[in-house]
Design a protein around this nucleic acid. Structure first.
Lengths: 238, 238
DNA sequence: CCTAATATTTAGGTATACCTAAATCATCGG
DNA sequence: CCGATGATTTAGGTATACCTAAATATTAGG
């Protein structure tokens, strides 16, 4: 009857800090600055400092933190961050595959629910989906053991030469952008021809075999990753 | 990016107060005392008073409250309470039907998730389930418009005469009790023969056509409701 | 009708997770 | 190498939702 949750579970806020540190630190687990976290989480820098001090001082510290030197996840923190990320991506896959959500709506729902589902729920939806390794955005889903496949892909914004690529993933950062990209046929697995950079740091691209080209803003291009292995480079720069 | 939720949504705590007032006030919406709420929610009586004052003083009050005279839901409070109850029962049905949860585990999971699902999630699982009106415990599910069918059933503990009854619902109040009742074949739709009251306010009953009788504690009997229409009364008291 | 027991409320305190304003630290350019 | 700028932290404050202890209101029994 008590409204309290299990004492061993982190709060939603703590989960979000851990996820943010994981995301901003990248695969190499770089130290993350307070400012970057403040930006990412939409919280005042002073609040970040407070929370990091608390997370570092806990009985089992979730982060390693030194004043003015940024923060990294501890083993326990990384474990939880990956668990929440697994929840997020499994829920997204479930909403898309089982509940027929439009792809641009799965992120927001998963963002809320990821903190509250039980181990059993996680296990059941994973089983229902056949233990998927990739979510509908093309992102890899960490395993139950906290392993995550490295993303062998590069950002569209890092492309220096014209060519034809396979789209690896499209970020769920912004629902509107995602909806627009979907409408243009830009989704994981699709073929993308990069024609040239536009004056405003954007890209002129076309999809599949179509020759109809359109512009991608720099921001939208930053949401698109291309499969590194299948890159078909052309000799001249764009 | 902000960790905050929509400002118009109640907190988990508020939802739980509203649900408790709905449950304790019964179909007739009787006034509910602070003590009853304190008991039900596992919270100190002083905390109840505090919360009720806040709920009553809100811009759109969720309850009507007078010092020392108990509390009732306002129209807005009742609307939200029924929405949360609908969420609870739809989620329970979904966990049971789609995710193959054992019945004694659906309550706890639904209790957490009911506060966090969106309208879209609610609508999608309802559609997937064919807009069910009864949950796996035999409880009726409020409609999207906030209508709930009256339960035309009586508590086993109110039975005064021996007879054969159809089980209408079995409460999800306690997972252990529910598991034990399930193991004895006590579930909605089953036939229950009530033989006699035992010395300790319990009941001697048997299931289906079986003549094997067993004891139900008074507490367990309080979790079982019997279909009022189909009651087959015997002439003598038990 | 009055008092004792019980129910309820008031008062004051805690932890979480935010905030703003002010102070301090780090680093880069001259 | 030293000060200005920007990054970060400290200090002090807010709201939510709980708590305990003390005060007060209600009700029921004699």
């Amino acid at each position: 009857m008590s409204p309290r949750r299990q004492a061993n579970r982190n709060s939603e806020s703590v989960d979000n800090y851990l996820k943010a540190i994981l995301a901003l630190g990248g695969a190499e687990q770089r130290r993350v600055t307070s400012t970057a976290l403040a930006d990412h989480l939409g919280v005042a820098p002073a609040s970040i400092t407070n929370m990091l001090q608390k997370l570092a001082a806990a009985a089992t510290p979730l982060v390693e933190y030194e004043r003015h030197r940024g923060v990294q996840l501890s083993a326990a923190g990384k474990r939880r961050a990956l668990e929440v990320l697994r929840h997020h991506r499994l829920i997204e896959t479930f909403l898309y595959e089982v509940l027929d959500y439009p792809i641009e709506e799965i992120h927001e729902e998963a963002e809320r629910l990821e903190h509250f589902i039980s181990e059993r729920f996680e296990e059941r939806i994973a089983a229902k989906l056949g233990h998927p390794r990739i979510d509908p955005h093309g992102h890899s889903i960490p395993t139950m053991e906290g392993e995550m496949a490295l993303q062998n892909s590069i950002l569209l914004t890092e492309i220096e030469r014209e060519g034809v690529f396979t789209i690896d993933s499209v970020s769920d950062r912004d629902a509107l952008t995602l909806r627009q990209l979907k409408a243009s046929g830009i989704k994981p697995g699709a073929r993308l021809r990069v024609r040239k950079k536009t004056e405003a740091q954007g890209y002129l691209v076309s999809i599949g075999r179509s020759s109809a080209a359109f512009d991608l803003s720099h921001e939208a291009a930053g949401d698109i990753r291309l499969l590194a292995e299948q890159i078909n480079l052309r000799p001249r720069a764009i």
